[in-house]
Amino acid sequence: MAEITYQGAKIYFEVAGEGDKVPLVLLHGFLEDSRIWEEIVKELKKERQIICIDLPGHGKSQGIADIHTMTLMADVVREVLNSLEIKRVSVAGHSMGGYASLELLRNFPMIIESVMLINSTPLEDTVEKQEIRERSVKLVGRNKKAYVSMAISNLFPEESKKKFASEIEDLKARAYEMKSKNIQATLKGMKIRTNYLEELNGFGRQKIIAASKEDPILDFNELQRLAKGCDCEFHSLENGHNSYMEDLNNLTKIMHFID
């Protein structure tokens, strides 16, 4: 992996592939890291350059601040692209990575060719969700491992918990390695993120929302309505929230058509 230093913190990323298409940035979700994309990268790197980034406090990347805002996440992505001298990209983000993708679109629209949200939403947290994040911050302080295990398990419907038991345990094991303060900083950052519907509506190039029918934390029908209202391509996926694991083949096929 390559690295840059941003505000005193080491940020790690990996670059693979080449081709005529605009480079594609892949951004992982909360409690994940860039390794979630390994199988997808194997396919997509045949036609374009792929940049996978460990967002602050995740994977090998160090934490930066008491609150990891989506603005900070987007700034980190921008700095990685600057280090690679890349002027234009498409971006796809899973869950929290989708929020960071939309913040990148908000702050640096001139560099974005296409944007894809995977099991993610352009909406801000509801009041109820904000309260859950506040309680989660406290729980992480008391028992990080219990929180991580619960938070990851809650992403999967029961059938997926059985089918992908080994992969889920591996995901948990990697998340256990995260520092409590970085988990808390990210929870705080997601809690205060804003609504991105205006940016998504105003974006005139390719925009995609992919949602899973059995996602336990995002409403499939709501995302379908949002996609229609924002004139986004909408794609239906099977199983739960982590479609890069639960519906890998279909997701990869969709991602081949990112401009």
Rank of each mutant, 00 (worst) to 15 (best):
L72Q: 04
I118N: 04
T126E: 01
E39S: 13
I209K: 10
K129P: 06
K60L: 12
L223A: 03
H256A: 05
N143L: 09
V148G: 15
N82F: 02
L197G: 01
F156W: 03
V22Y: 03
L105A: 02
E238H: 09
V148Y: 14
S243F: 04
N182F: 03
Q62A: 12
L44K: 03
K207G: 02
A146E: 15
G204A: 13
V25E: 04
A151E: 10
E131M: 14
A16H: 09
Q49L: 13
S61T: 09
Y244D: 00
E103P: 00
D33P: 02
S114K: 03
V25N: 03
L187M: 12
S34G: 10
E167R: 13
E214A: 15
Y147C: 13
Q184T: 03
I209S: 09
G19E: 07
C52Y: 01
Y147Q: 12
Q49D: 04
S166H: 12
I67A: 00
G240I: 10
E113N: 15
C230P: 00
L251R: 08
G141F: 12
I50G: 06
N249L: 05
I254T: 02
N182C: 10
I11D: 03
P109D: 04
A175Q: 09
S160R: 06
M73I: 03
S136K: 04
L44V: 12
Q49I: 11
A16R: 13
M150Y: 14
E169H: 05
L237W: 01
L248W: 02
M73F: 12
D66M: 04
V127N: 00
K87T: 08
L44N: 06
S236Q: 15
P56Q: 07
I51R: 07
N201V: 08
I118M: 13
E85Q: 14
C232A: 15
M150H: 14
F234M: 06
S83N: 15
A2R: 15
R133K: 10
K191Y: 00
N107R: 09
G204M: 00
D66T: 08
V80A: 02
S61C: 08
L72G: 02
A165Q: 07
F13N: 05
F13C: 07
G141D: 11
N195T: 13
A173H: 06
K144A: 13
V41F: 01
R174P: 08
E79Y: 01
N221R: 13
Q49A: 09
P109F: 02
N107F: 01
F257S: 14
R48K: 15
N201Y: 09
S90E: 04
A211Q: 14
A146V: 14
E14L: 08
H94V: 06
R174M: 05
K162S: 07
N143R: 12
E159I: 14
I112A: 03
E128V: 13
I258P: 15
V140N: 11
D231M: 03
E131I: 04
A175K: 07
E32H: 05
I40N: 11
D20Q: 08
M96V: 08
I132T: 05
I64E: 04
T194D: 04
I152E: 07
G19N: 02
A100H: 07
H235Q: 09
N107E: 04
G141I: 13
K162C: 01
M178R: 12
F30R: 06
Y12D: 10
